[in-house]
């Protein structure tokens, strides 16, 4: 049985910013953006699930984020993940890609054996594509980026097709390997209704602490830790001590890059010439463009 780890991230949905999520000054209102499963991480999860179906595998999904990131772990369970882990600690906040990859790799080292790590090519909030290769380096394993397709997998070797600038490459690697996945690689499956019915009750340690004692008393089958663990409904949370990380390498202190300044992009109005949508208007426009040597 292959052991597969999938790295995922919860991100603000930056793709469809509408006037509703813009402030009056034309800048984006980040808090109004819904938090979603990073799209290419769904492709990474799908790649793992395809291997699980074809070759047999245990799929463990790991995310680092605030306690609310438990939501994308539930979504992973709905789709067929076997285990989920939430890395959450205030001391992880403010991590750049280097600190993030340190935290992720430290957590992965706690997991006994893994054959393949899948991650999305990049996250839509930063578009850096850095964390995958950085985790691979920290684990001292090879990396294959921009994966399009797993062509073959046998005991300790994988063959994949990947996209490079203006072309493709077919690579063969020994396991373990970290692979980042493109959005064109596959179509992520929808959550299964059956799994959803089961795992919507999955609850993280932080969420459990917020459940009132009365509720716990009234519904021990939903909220007792032992029952939850038995039914695979407890979302494991690991903090800094759990993964034995060096605090100076986490969060802001472990991040060499600092955001010095942010400028919001606003639409600057130009001096606009209105061209009438008729033959005459268009003729005049084309004449002007030719005269000005623009066309």
């Amino acid at each position: 049985m292959y052991q597969i780890i999938v790295l995922v991230k919860q991100v603000p949905d930056t793709r469809n910013i509408t006037t509703k999520t813009m402030k009056e000054d034309g800048t984006v209102n980040r808090t109004a953006l819904p938090a979603i499963f990073n799209p290419e991480d769904l492709n990474a999860l799908e790649s793992a699930l395809l291997i699980k179906e074809k070759y047999g595998a245990i799929v463990t999904v790991i995310t680092m984020g605030p306690p609310s990131a438990a939501e994308i772990l539930r979504e992973s369970l709905y789709r067929g993940a076997d285990k989920v882990i939430l890395l959450t600690d205030r001391r992880f906040a403010g991590s750049d890609t280097l600190a993030t990859s340190y935290i992720l790799s430290t957590a992965i080292k706690r997991i006994e054996k893994f054959d393949i790590i899948f991650a999305g090519r990049q996250a839509i909030d930063g578009d850096t594509a850095q964390v995958g290769p950085q985790v691979a380096e920290k684990l001292n394993i090879p990396q294959i980026t921009y994966m399009q397709e797993v062509l073959h997998l046998n005991k300790n070797e994988i063959k994949v097709k990947r996209l490079i600038d203006n072309g493709i490459e077919v690579l063969k690697s020994k396991l373990p390997v970290l692979i980042t996945v493109n959005n064109t690689s596959n179509t992520p499956r929808f959550p299964s209704i059956k799994q959803m019915a089961k795992f919507k009750k999955a609850i993280s340690n932080s969420e459990l602490t917020k459940v009132s004692n009365t509720l716990k008393y009234l519904s021990p089958e939903l909220y007792s830790e032992e029952t939850l663990i038995q039914n695979r409904l407890l979302i494991n949370e690991w903090n800094l001590e759990d993964i034995n990380a060096d605090p100076s390498l986490c969060g802001i202190s472990g991040s060499p890059t600092k955001v010095f300044k942010i400028n919001y992009v606003t639409l600057e109005a130009q001096e606009t010439k209105e061209i009438l949508p008729n033959e005459k208007g268009i003729q005049a426009l084309m004449q002007e463009l030719i005269k000005e040597h623009i066309v």
């Binding site: 280097l98 578009d127 594509a129 850095q130 995958g132 950085q134 060499p256 890059t257």
Partner: peptide, 23 residues
């Protein structure tokens, strides 16, 4: 920030332990 640069630079930054800004 080509397909080569974007996979090479982060691996290097991780090994050297320095910051890297993409794109």
């Amino acid at each position: 920030a080509t397909s080569i640069g974007r996979e090479l630079a982060p691996r290097i930054a991780s090994a050297v332990r320095c910051g890297l800004t993409a794109d």
